Computed example of a mutant assay.
Amino acid sequence: MKTFHSDQLSVAFLPPATPFFPVEGRKYTVTHDDENGEIYLSIGYIYDRVKINSKLRDEVIAEWIPRLGEYTLWGQVYVSGGEFDEKYSQVRFLVFQREIETALRAMVKGDQTFYSYFPWLLDAPIYIQFESVYPQFQKIIFCGTPRQYIKLTKENEIQSAAE
């Protein structure tokens, strides 16, 4: 995914989802094209399985879920189910760790209208679960809040405009 550039982001809403509905169960699918640098974000009640490459499995998915009276953006990345050896799984794990910020920036930027309707979600925690058959790559990491990704994107846009 490389660096996030909002002009390379394509957003699709999967009906009946809209820029302001639903909250609970709102799902994101982030994929990308290595050749042209385009990032694709689908927002809906379901994950966009059509966009997921079943051989590469390099998507990032996430969903708004209620936990203990608050909403959490809970994401997942697929490292290995056994089809990749341990070394290749380690490479995938490291790449996902490096690129997760780009995927989260795309999710937040692509759904910015949603946050104008639900500004209290700007400070909700984001967790990403790394799924793998290898225990050393099975992790859940805290990735901040949507507000942090909005701030990063704005700073990047200001810096790009100044150059």
Results as ranks from 00 to 15, higher is better:
residue 92 R to C: 07
residue 86 E to A: 08
residue 137 F to S: 09
residue 29 T to C: 09
residue 121 L to M: 13
residue 156 N to D: 10
residue 46 I to M: 11
residue 118 F to M: 06
residue 77 V to C: 08
residue 98 R to S: 10
residue 95 V to A: 09
residue 48 D to R: 10
residue 102 T to A: 00
residue 16 P to G: 13
residue 68 L to D: 13
residue 159 Q to T: 09
residue 92 R to F: 06
residue 51 K to A: 15
residue 56 L to F: 13
residue 139 K to T: 09
residue 33 D to L: 08
residue 75 G to Q: 03
residue 1 M to E: 09
residue 113 T to V: 04
residue 86 E to K: 11
residue 56 L to E: 15
residue 140 I to F: 05
residue 1 M to V: 15
residue 72 T to A: 00
residue 20 F to C: 14
residue 40 Y to G: 06
residue 11 V to R: 04
residue 137 F to D: 05
residue 48 D to Y: 12
residue 99 E to C: 04
residue 77 V to D: 07
residue 90 Q to S: 11
residue 152 L to F: 12
residue 135 P to L: 01
residue 95 V to D: 11
residue 42 S to K: 02
residue 69 G to K: 05
residue 97 Q to F: 06
residue 17 A to W: 10
residue 30 V to N: 07
residue 79 V to E: 01
residue 22 P to S: 13
residue 35 E to M: 08
residue 22 P to K: 14
residue 102 T to Y: 00
residue 30 V to E: 09
residue 163 E to K: 14
residue 107 M to R: 02
residue 60 V to T: 15
residue 111 D to E: 12
residue 24 E to L: 06
residue 119 P to R: 00
residue 41 L to D: 03
residue 50 V to G: 11
residue 96 F to A: 09
residue 11 V to F: 06
residue 97 Q to M: 08
residue 96 F to P: 10
residue 25 G to H: 06
residue 43 I to A: 05
residue 31 T to S: 02
residue 46 I to T: 09
